[in-house]
Design a protein around this nucleic acid. Structure first.
Lengths: 140, 140
DNA sequence: ATGGCTATTTATAACTC
DNA sequence: TGAGTTATAAATAGCCA
């Protein structure tokens, strides 16, 4: 069913994207496990062809970058952190990744927009609430 | 001979270093294959406890860093918005409903929460902007 | 430490719904 | 099409030279 696969560029767009998504997740997981097990300082940055950025860093991306720049005496570090590490972020990233947001959205009516916007705001609030809750629990 | 291993810090120095070396090689290989197969822009940086730096980048580390920094400084360009709204709603909805959200989110640190919240807010803003834009165009 | 060598766990390409 | 399943390939923890 499955033969040894050759490591070369996948021509078929659909297959390439499938592999991109699967391997991206695998890579992210490996990087995380690597840091957890060996307590290493490391970071991983990935840009999709549609410009989405996925990143992971331990202890933080910018910390690793600072060390790299200190090492190679390069330029300045970016300020804000990067992208998808959690499942939630990954889900959102994947949705954005599919590249048809604007198209699909055009079909909505004005009211549907209000509804969607409200929904997103609601989710944002829920996330904020969880942050508060977990902080109170001491991030066990 | 070998049981399922727990992903946690390895206390024994010798074993930790062995794992560090083995997994570092595996991670590098994966990153390389990932780039070769999906033609992605990505980079991986690892610092050993003895300050050694291991890195991989495609096409080059500095190229990926430049993009990261460009992204960070102009995080406002709402043009990167994409992805079907319906799909987005479904995905987010599923995550919230399945209850896996809280689980996934618990692993985040306080700062990561800020990041996620900001990301959600950014998406909400982009949706609102599209609403305005399409309304102005008369929903053709 | 270094470099194999399995026994197993993991990752994942191809396939299915 | 996207999400889930399965059969294999690949990674690697525990050992030993």
């Amino acid at each position: 069913m499955r033969r040894r696969i050759e490591i070369k560029l996948i021509d078929d767009n659909s297959k390439r994207h499938t592999t991109f998504t699967k391997r991206r997740k695998g890579l992210m997981k490996k990087a995380e496990e690597f840091c957890r097990k060996s307590d290493s300082t490391a970071m991983l940055l990935i840009f999709s062809s549609s410009k989405n950025c996925y990143g992971f860093g331990h202890p933080e991306i910018d910390y690793v970058l600072d060390r790299y720049e200190a090492d190679s005496s390069s330029a300045e570090a970016g300020t804000s952190a990067a992208g998808a590490v959690t499942e939630m972020e990954t889900r959102i990233g994947d949705a954005v990744e599919s590249g048809r947001w604007e198209e699909a959205v055009r079909g909505l009516g004005f009211d549907a927009f209000d509804q969607l916007t409200a929904e997103l705001e609601n989710i944002r609030r829920q996330v904020a609430a969880l942050q508060t809750k977990f902080a109170a629990e001491g991030w066990r």
